[in-house]
Amino acid sequence: MLGNLGKKQIIDLLQRQVIGRLGCHANDETYIVPINYVYRNDSIYAHSGSGKKIEMMRINPKVCLQVDEIADTFRWRSVILWGVFEELNGEERQQAMQAIIHRIMPLTNKPSEESSHGIDVDLHNNLIVYRIRITEVTGRFESHED
Score class of each variant (00 low, 15 high):
A26W: 12
Y45K: 08
H117T: 09
L14Y: 00
Q94K: 14
R133M: 10
S116H: 12
C24I: 04
R40Y: 12
P106E: 08
G3F: 00
A71Q: 13
I128W: 01
F141W: 02
A71I: 13
N27I: 03
D42G: 13
N89H: 14
E92R: 15
F141P: 00
Q98N: 12
D120Q: 08
H25R: 09
L14V: 01
N89K: 12
Q17W: 03
Y31K: 00
R75I: 04
A71F: 04
V63T: 11
G49R: 09
H25T: 06
M1G: 14
I132N: 06
N36K: 01
A26P: 04
G83A: 07
I32G: 00
D12F: 05
D122S: 13
C64W: 08
D72T: 09
R21A: 00
R40I: 10
Q15D: 14
K62T: 09
I104D: 03
M105T: 04
G118H: 02
E87C: 11
R21N: 03
G6D: 15
S112H: 13
Q9F: 06
S115G: 09
G118K: 01
G118C: 01
A96Y: 05
I19V: 15
I44H: 05
K7Q: 14
N4K: 15
K7N: 14
Q94F: 09
L22A: 09
E142A: 11
A99G: 13
I44G: 10
P61E: 03
W76P: 03
R75A: 12
L88M: 07
I70P: 07
L123P: 05
E91R: 14
V79L: 07
S43M: 06
W76T: 02
T30R: 01
F141I: 00
F85E: 11
L5Y: 07
S43L: 03
N126V: 05
E55M: 06
L13V: 08
I11F: 04
S116D: 10
D42T: 03
F85T: 06
S112K: 10
